[in-house]
């Protein structure tokens, strides 16, 4: 069983600089062809400071702190037994190339189903930009398979 005492644990905030090249790479990877996501001039014509990050790019900011989310080390999880259960985002503003985003992350719940064969870890993240504006929140549920033990 994963250590339930870690419910409430807050990870150290991480800082991620949003690079234009990285956003273009992300757009390419998801097959996004709208030039607003790749061309600065097109984005600026539509009122953005620079090319915007697509909605699910927030996950990429989570990965900036370490090789993998620190959750795995904290709970001693085996990466190959983790499945992504669900992901929810709330958006309050945009992220554009050139922004610096502070990511905070907290474990808000852990529970199990099927007599412990499956454990669930729920994390909430927040994303705040360089001028202190909260631009998004995320809630992520990871599923941990214990059944092979």
């Amino acid at each position: 069983m994963l250590d339930r005492r870690k419910i409430g644990h807050e990870f150290d905030p991480t800082t991620a600089v949003v690079e234009r090249g990285r956003l273009r790479f992300f757009a390419k990877a998801i097959g996004e062809t709208d030039p607003i996501y790749t061309e600065q001039k097109v984005a600026q014509k539509l009122g953005y400071r620079d090319i915007p990050a697509p909605p699910t790019f927030l996950m990429a900011l989570d990965m900036e702190g370490t090789d993998f989310p620190p959750l795995i080390k904290l709970l001693g999880m085996d990466l190959s037994r983790i499945m992504h259960g669900s992901q929810e985002y709330e958006y309050f503003g945009d992220i554009c190339a050139g922004d610096t985003i502070i990511v905070t992350s907290k474990i808000v719940d852990m529970f199990d189903k099927k007599n412990g064969a499956l454990e669930f870890v729920v994390c909430e993240n927040s994303y705040t930009n360089q001028i202190g504006v909260l631009i998004g929140k995320a809630r992520q549920t990871l599923v941990y398979r214990n059944s092979q033990e």
Partner: peptide, 25 residues
């Protein structure tokens, strides 16, 4: 796949109108 869902949505309406997005895998 969730990024593909977001592409569908932003093809339909500008991203600035997206308030919440959630999915179960």
């Amino acid at each position: 796949s969730m990024a593909y869902l977001s592409r569908m949505l932003t093809n339909w309406q500008p991203q600035s109108r997206l308030r919440r997005l959630g999915a179960r895998f």
